[in-house]
Amino acid sequence: MTDLGALYLADLRERMRGVKGLGEGALGQLDEGQWHAALTPEGNSAAVLIQHLSGNMHSRWGALRHGYTPGAEGEAPGRHRDAEFEEGEATPAELWALWEAGWAVFLEAAEQLKPEDLTRELTIRGEPHSVLAALQRQVAHYSGHVYQLVFLVRTLRGAQWQTLSIARGGSASFNAQMAARR
């Protein structure tokens, strides 16, 4: 019999590495001057999205980076969430470092979690969640922001955009290649 918790955690780790890779595929296409560009005056630039993702990952998962800790709070006391949404002057290298640091915290915490941890309690801003619920909340949150990055970069790059999935008109060829591998 398969341990559902172990299966879930393995899938979560793999899928979130894929989400990270998708974001990196988009970010890697930005020109230096596009990191701080937003599509609307109230929109978020890639830099702002990275700042927010990194801040959230550190806050939510820093306490679990070395495994489950009873009483863990998923909102770090020193976090300044509003500042994450302020446009700064970080360089692309600094933004890549923030991206990597945030994902390292989340993925390290995910690696340390055990199936039995999924039903344990974690609070976020004092609100109790199971670890499973907290993970699901963040999977949706992080994926949403990464897809915002993809849309933003695709729009900024226009005709220079390099697809991160199956190119338009390429489904039949892709399906044939997949069938040949089986």
Rank of each mutant, 00 (worst) to 15 (best):
L7Q: 08
D11R: 11
M16H: 07
K20G: 01
G21T: 08
G23K: 07
A26H: 04
L27R: 04
Q29A: 02
L30D: 02
D31F: 04
G33K: 05
Q34W: 05
W35M: 07
L39I: 15
P41D: 15
P41E: 15
G43W: 12
V48C: 00
Q51E: 03
H52A: 00
S54L: 00
S54I: 00
S54D: 03
S54R: 10
S54P: 00
G55S: 02
M57G: 03
S59Y: 07
G71F: 07
G74P: 08
E75C: 14
E75F: 15
R79E: 13
A83N: 08
A83Q: 12
E84G: 07
F85I: 02
G88M: 03
A90R: 14
A90C: 02
E94G: 10
E100N: 13
A101K: 13
G102F: 05
A104T: 15
V105K: 04
E108Y: 02
E108K: 10
E108G: 12
A109V: 09
E111H: 13
Q112C: 14
L113D: 09
P115S: 04
I124V: 14
G126K: 07
P128E: 04
H129P: 01
S130F: 06
L132P: 03
A134T: 11
H141S: 10
H141V: 12
V146H: 09
V150W: 06
F151W: 06
T163H: 13
G170Q: 14
S171Q: 13
S171W: 14
S171K: 15
N175F: 11
A176V: 02
A176N: 06
A176W: 03
Q177V: 08
A180P: 02
